[in-house]
């Protein structure tokens, strides 16, 4: 009997080596461990053994059974693993094939830049306000110290609706509306569309976009204006970005400045991009003119403020290296999908 048990053990071990699948494995299990299996048959004969032999053979039989189960289990694991490997191998796909995309919309480049500007100024405590595009001459010009016969009006070719109503030429019109309604402290930006009767070409458009900024409070200085603009430029263009202020003239600010940013390409050396100047004009700014404050009912002896106006289109064009302003309003999908 002992020999029989040993032979079963080695037979199973041998047979398992060539087993290919789980069914074959199960057949082996049934053949040896099933109710009518060979090992079971042997164990049924245990009763016939002598009292001395019984525990010895019994122990051996248990050992063989445990071994067989162990062998079967291992083999089963091995086969399952092989099967899975084969399955995974069969499932191999070409991961270099293009993915399936969900449709996605693209934000307009002007909005991308405007959102950045808004975030920068919200972070500095500015609120966002808007004003009408079809505007009274009063708000667009007169209240900004630009009476009807002022020569500086010539620099802004204006679309007229009537003698007293214009398409606003600058978001500065919102300054006066804000100051009429709100008492200092005032800290706002006002983005929007502006209009000038410039024929459309690569660098001019009769419709473009500005962001106006206005701060009025006690003790606001020109140094604060510089600091605020510097923060904006560094956030937009990186910490290396540098600005310079040049004296200029706007009727509604005094002192007035044009603000240049150091050319990103040549870093001030002068190149084709900056037309040899080393600097690129970015925006106009200044301290709110005392007459304008006074006219809005704010005492210039008590309060001071600054204002600035940035051309959003130019900001976006510079940001994305767009060389033709017309692209912004053409809205060709091949253009929009680049941003």
């Amino acid at each position: 009997m002992k020999e029989a048990l040993e032979s079963i053990r080695s037979a199973v071990r041998q047979q398992l080596e060539s087993v290919k699948d789980l069914k074959e494995l199960d057949n082996i299990r049934v053949k040896y461990l099933g109710k009518k299996g060979e090992l079971t048959a042997i164990l049924k004969q245990m009763g016939k053994l002598s009292a001395e032999e019984r525990p010895v053979i019994g122990q051996l039989a248990n050992e063989v059974r445990s071994d067989l189960e162990h062998f079967l289990e291992n083999t089963s694991e091995k086969i399952k693993s092989q099967l899975q490997d084969a399955k995974l191998a069969a499932e191999t796909i070409d991961v270099t094939m293009p993915g399936r995309t969900a449709p996605m919309g693209y934000k307009h480049p002007l909005s991308i830049v405007l959102d950045e500007v808004k975030d920068i100024f919200l972070g500095m405590g500015f609120s966002v306000v808007t004003g009408p595009e079809v505007e009274k001459d009063y708000y667009n010009f007169e209240a900004l110290n630009l009476p009807k016969d002022h020569p500086a009006r010539d620099t802004q070719d204006t679309f007229y609706i009537s003698d007293d109503i214009v398409l606003r030429t600058q978001t500065s019109s919102v300054q006066v509306r804000v100051m009429e309604k709100q008492k200092p402290p005032i800290r706002v930006i006002s983005p929007g569309r502006v209009y000038r009767s410039d024929a459309l070409d690569a660098t001019h458009s009769p419709l473009f976009h500005q962001v106006e900024g206005l701060v009025v409070d006690k003790g606001v200085t020109m140094a604060d204006l510089k600091g605020t603009l510097e923060t904006m430029v560094k956030r937009l263009y990186g910490e290396d970005a540098q600005i310079r202020l040049r004296p200029h003239h706007f009727p509604f600010t005094e002192p007035s400045a044009e603000v240049d940013v150091m050319c990103f390409h040549c870093h001030g050396e002068g190149c084709r991009l900056c037309k040899g100047e080393g600097w690129i004009e970015l925006l106009g700014a200044g301290m709110v003119h005392p007459w304008v404050l006074q006219n809005c009912g704010i005492d210039p002896e008590v309060y001071s403020g600054f204002a600035f106006g940035v051309g959003l289109d130019r900001l976006a064009m510079r940001r994305f290296n767009i060389d033709d302003i017309r692209l912004l309003l053409d809205n060709d999908m091949r253009f929009l999908q680049q941003f």
Binding site: K226, T231, P255
Partner: peptide, 22 residues
């Protein structure tokens, strides 16, 4: 300011509290 040089004016941060809101 312009003869003193705009670039010689320091840069300072706005002071005071402000209520920005959306």
């Amino acid at each position: 300011a312009r003869i003193y040089g705009y670039n010689n004016i320091p840069t300072t941060k706005l002071r005071g509290a402000a209520e920005a809101k959306i």
